[in-house]
Write a protein that binds this DNA or RNA. Structure first.
Length: 554
RNA sequence: GGGCUUGUGGCCUAGUCCGGACAUGGCGUCAGCCUCCUAAGCUGAAUGUCGGGGGUUCAAAUCCCCCCAAGCCCGCCA
């Protein structure tokens, strides 16, 4: 409804003024939609903006196709307000199962996220990638895109060689009940200590990397074993966060099937390619001073080469590719895009997010300086369990645990997704353990409240009458949800959904406080219950888009 | 040294791409609200040179220039 009306008003303003851009925005408190077009026309017409706005408003009000939309000029602004019929339509639409879903689109999209090196567990920095990526994936599916989500498993890097060396040379047994990714991290950290003590080991590591590139069966098997072990643990963490990848793509496969050799051949034929002891691409024309090296002097490929092969493969199999990457990949990502363009291949769209650090400094798996996602989940779930136990002592142990788990994931995911990706953050335990306003649990709570009211209400007849200011404000906000989904996939910014859901919860809480539902009677009771149901459904849909469980009770 | 990103009340944050109506909300502080649909809630108060300085414009947190600060990157690592 909202989007159609937006487009209709935009067309009318264009026709009325002859301007290309209708300068239409959401009007905040003033209106559902507002235009500042009168300022622009003032220059051309050499008249006061307020007069022009008044003329436009008068002309448009005479148009019957506007129906239930009221137009008025407030000073130089042309304001549009949806009337009761339209708002009733908005509530009606918001009751649809799957509300917010957009029309099915053609073309396959591949979205790559997380892709952390399998040399240890995911830490609180990695899961920023995970949460942004998964929320984006959910928004894309809701927006009607056919989507495949991939994890690119770097199984032949130096880190993995170090892990493999550690398994071979250090006698580190797995502890009872230790998660495999944490075990791998211990081996990795210990191996790095050995290398520090004895730098000669570096040669052994280099040798392992050459063996694996050549496809030496025994070394490949050792690497795979280590990587599989770690990936098993990573998958468990992802599952706990409500995150699923459709496919794990192994980096070494591109070497094994010859794609890396083929891409090197293609790169060699580029006019920008140079071969001395290494093969590199000169990207100065594209604005990069740095050599883009794709083959070492010992003949082995580097990460960039394999990444080039991976993206070429993605380009062949998908119509659109999106990568979620940490800000440390900005340069290499730009070089990748530039090189793919030179090769005549499709470059990926890249969503970058800035770093998460600890109060004492940046995280490092190698130094063992990190807060793991598992530890975070455990701590937050413990706190959530205490909260649930205090509030709902009558529930069984199992029920309380289940709620605590959902609340914990909600708190963690929401904390991460609500912040713009371009902002660097410092991990803070106090904030992570806060379940109050502007948190995931706060929104879940609003949803549970709505459910509770509906459970107690029993049967009622759906009625669409909006009387109080709180009811009207809710309906106006409900109407915007599909537009928010649209904007989220257009701008690749999932935090818009987070902000939307929080605002909806805010509005619902205000309504809850001022407008009694169960105690009201007749038409009012029916229409308020209908509104509560619409809010319940829209909260559920927006929470689902954020990968957060919409609890019925908490 | 060069590049990218960020800088909004004590702390965190929206808005910046696409300039417009009193800069969004939270935490914390202070003052209130559970004989009333779950108080993970609600109401009110105090707190702002939108990093600094120029410029463009009828209009700048938003655009342009300069400067300052922080994070990240600048490896035959990934």
């Amino acid at each position: 409804m909202f989007q159609e009306k937006y487009q209709q008003i935009e067309r009318m303003l264009r026709a009325c003024t002859g301007e290309e851009d209708a300068l239409l925005t959401t009007g905040g408190d003033h209106a559902d939609l507002a235009s500042t077009i009168a300022f622009k026309r003032a220059k051309v017409e050499k008249r006061a903006p307020a007069k022009i706005a008044a003329d436009i408003a008068e002309k448009l009000s005479a148009d019957p196709s506007l129906g239930d939309i009221r137009v008025e000029a407030t000073g130089p602004y042309v304001n549009f307000r949806f009337g009761p019929t339209l708002l009733a339509d908005a509530v009606r639409e918001a009751l649809d199962p799957g509300y917010g879903a957009l029309q099915r689109r053609t073309g396959r999209v591949v979205l790559e996220h997380t892709s952390a090196n399998p040399n240890g567990p995911l830490h609180v920095g990695h899961i920023r990638n995970t949460v942004i990526g998964d929320s984006l994936a959910r928004a894309f599916r809701k927006a009607g895109h056919a989507l495949e989500v991939q994890y690119y498993l770097n199984d032949m890097g130096r880190q993995i060689a170090i892990v493999s060396w550690g398994f071979d040379h250090l006698d580190i047994p797995r502890k009872e009940g230790e998660k495999p990714d944490h075990y791998v991290a211990r081996v990795y950290i210990a191996a790095n200590r050995e290398i520090e003590k004895n730098p000669e080991i570096t040669k052994e590591i280099d040798h392992l990397m050459q063996l694996v590139e050549r496809g030496d069966a025994e070394t490949v098997k050792k690497f795979r074993t280590a990587v599989s072990l770690c990936a098993e643990g990573i998958k468990a963490t992802l599952a706990a966060l409500n995150v699923h990848h459709d496919r794990f793509v192994w980096e070494s496969d591109f070497v094994r099937i010859g794609d890396v050799d083929r891409i090197i051949e293609r790169v060699r034929r580029l006019p920008q390619a140079h071969e001395d002891e290494t093969l590199w691409v000169n990207l100065t024309e594209q604005g990069f001073e740095k050599k883009y090296i794709l083959r070492r002097s010992d003949g082995t490929s580097v990460y960039s080469t394999r990444d080039l092969a991976y993206h070429t493969w993605k380009g062949r199999n998908y119509d659109r590719m999106i990568d979620v990457l940490g800000a440390d990949h900005k340069l290499i990502g730009a070089q990748l895009r530039a090189t793919l363009t030179l090769l005549g291949e499709q470059p990926p769209e890249i969503v970058f997010f800035e770093f998460v650090s600890l109060p004492e400094g940046s995280m490092s798996t190698r130094a063992g300086k990190f807060v793991s996602a598992d530890e975070l989940i455990e701590e937050v779930a413990a706190k959530a369990y205490d909260e649930v136990t205090t509030r709902r002592p009558e529930l069984s142990f199992e029920e309380r645990c289940a709620i605590a788990k959902s609340v914990a994931i909600a708190a963690i995911r929401y904390d991460i997704v609500k912040v713009s990706p371009e902002k660097s953050t410092v991990f803070d335990w106090k904030e992570a353990l806060d379940f109050e306003r502007q948190s995931g649990p706060y929104i879940q709570y609003a949803h549970a409240r709505a459910c509770s009211i509906l459970d107690k209400a029993g049967e009622f007849t759906r009625t669409y009458t909006l009387e109080t200011e709180h009811e009207v404000a809710l309906a106006r906000h409900l109407a915007r949800f599909p537009a928010v989904i649209e904007q989220t996939v257009e701008e690749l910014r999932p935090h818009l959904v987070a902000a939307y859901a929080r605002e909806l919860a805010d509005l619902f809480n205000a309504f809850y406080h001022y407008d009694p539902v169960l105690k009201s009677e007749g038409e009012t009771r029916n229409s308020r219950l209908t509104l509560v149901d619409a809010v319940r459904n829209t909260l559920q849909e927006s929470l689902a888009t954020l990968g957060i469980d919409a609890l019925r009770s908490m």
